[in-house]
């Protein structure tokens, strides 16, 4: 499991380049995704961005993501609040188109630190990519 805390767009981008070295193949963010979050794993790395941004507490939002690495078979997206040990009260629906996708129906119902978890599966294996964010 890979965990990365993002402190800001520029820092996130810089960190992504550093942290992915020796892990999953790094790739640039999709065009127009400046400020997107990144998560580096062993097999895959991911760029993700919420809509709307920043993520609001208590309102539905979606996440667009782009994965770099071997072919992707299936992706599940969920949220987890590690300090409280609970997830979301909603199960997002993921639409996958090649290595890119959208998760609809997320809702962070409490303020504080949340993990955004992409559970990625493919012929190469299975990996949980964990990013962190604080909704506003």
């Amino acid at each position: 499991m890979a965990r990365r805390r993002l402190a800001g767009p520029a820092l996130a981008a810089a960190l992504a380049l550093v942290l992915t070295a020796g892990q999953a193949a790094a790739c640039p963010p999709p065009q127009g995704w400046a400020g997107a979050g990144s998560i580096a794993g062993e097999l895959w790395s991911a760029w993700w961005r919420p809509e709307p941004a920043p993520i609001p507490v208590g309102d539905h939002f979606s996440v667009r993501f782009h994965l770099c690495g071997p072919p992707v078979g299936r992706v599940q997206v969920r949220g987890w609040m590690p300090d409280h040990r609970h997830g979301m009260n909603y199960r997002p629906a993921v639409t996958l188109n090649g290595a890119s996708g959208t998760a609809e129906g997320l809702l962070f119902h409490m303020p504080g630190r949340w993990q955004l978890i992409l559970d990625v599966r493919g012929a190469a294996g299975r990996e949980k990519l964990v990013g962190e964010t604080v909704p506003e």
Binding site: V57, G58, H84, N89, H109, M110, P111
Partner: peptide
């Protein structure tokens, strides 16, 4: 308290 009683209405709208 404010984790659940959040926001202007003092509820996060959940359970």
């Amino acid at each position: 308290c404010a984790f659940c009683h959040f926001g202007p209405a003092f509820t996060n709208g959940e359970f």
